[in-house]
Nucleic acid binder design. Structure first.
Ligand code: SF4
Ligand code: SF4
Lengths: 157, 157
DNA sequence: TTGACTCGGATAACTGTTGTCCGAATAGAA
DNA sequence: TTCTATTCGGACAACAGTTATCCGAGTCAA
């Protein structure tokens, strides 16, 4: 089980975008994080489709957040990039084989599916509690100020 | 993000093994669930390595649970088959690029990694609360008795 | 009007998962 | 004790999903 690595990039991009007032291009973001700009573009497309960021075309274009940082949860980003379907997918094994349970008795989800679903919900709920604003606050507290201002300056250039 | 489909089979096998007093072969389990016996064997190997089941070779051999059903949690099975490493893996983006944070300042995990780790722990904790015995109790409650006894009889043959 | 710059979706390479096979080891029967 | 039928175990391919890339359509500023 492996989550898309693009989630990490997406979260970093949201944090950076929140700090920069002007639109930032995908190329800039890619260079700042030293990752493939083509692939990062794909992740930004996903964020755009989910309505988390808005893209501006043409010169001096780029990406901007559509909402305030405290209105975007980590779960929003994860679901935008990694998808919304849960990790566990039941294949209805109980309806196959010689001792199959008839389909009309399978109206209620089996205990296995319920357990997995409950765990998945706990996971998502945990991610929903943290917003981009929380991340920013933590970054501001733990990162040397000269690096923060330097990065902001580098973005503007 | 997708969990190994073998988890579902592994859980079903644990439930079945708990009901059968005698060792059950991989071929029987595969036919009962109507899945590839070669691939199911692979999953059973993983359960064996994790110490959840014990294999007996030779004639009248097969698999048996090593512990009581209420001593085996769903998390045990998941971790045995799907692995123990969390879905999110940090690539330390912050140490790369023009505005890299120096490595000596990265002693504490960043907020993103902490958030993901917390959610992963909540997920695992939720799975740890349910045991195979709980699953069995639920199955006994919701499955027609004739199918249960029929399956047990079919296994013996 | 021009022009250059932006994102967007369609297109390949790669890693991880799924599925299969045959050999080593064992328990029971002769 | 020997032999054989039967079992599991790890090594070997096929598939899918993820990762990475490219070029064209559309847009804003000059
Ligand atoms: S018993 Fe549960 S996990 Fe198994 S096939 Fe049915 S719904 Fe899926
Ligand atoms: S900031 Fe967090 S998620 Fe990003 S690279 Fe560093 S540790 Fe990983």
């Amino acid at each position: 089980m492996k989550m898309s690595g693009g989630v990490e990039w997406g979260l970093h991009c949201c944090v950076v975008l929140s700090g920069a007032g002007a639109p930032v291009t995908a190329a800039k973001l890619a260079e700042l994080h030293d990752v493939s700009q083509s692939y990062l573009a794909k992740q930004l497309q996903l964020l755009s489709r989910a309505g988390l960021v808005r893209s501006t075309l043409g010169q001096s274009g780029g990406y901007v957040l559509t909402r305030a940082a405290n209105e975007i949860t980590v779960l929003d980003v994860v679901e935008a990039i990694d998808g919304v379907q849960p990790a566990f997918r039941c294949t209805e094994v109980r309806q196959r084989g010689p001792m199959a349970v008839p389909a009309e008795r399978c109206d209620t989800p089996c205990p296995i599916a319920r357990t997995m679903d409950s765990a998945d919900r706990a996971w998502r709920e945990s991610l929903r509690r943290v917003t981009i604003a929380d991340l920013i606050a933590d970054v501001n507290r733990t990162t040397p100020p000269e690096i923060l201002s330097g990065a902001r300056e580098w973005l503007r250039a």
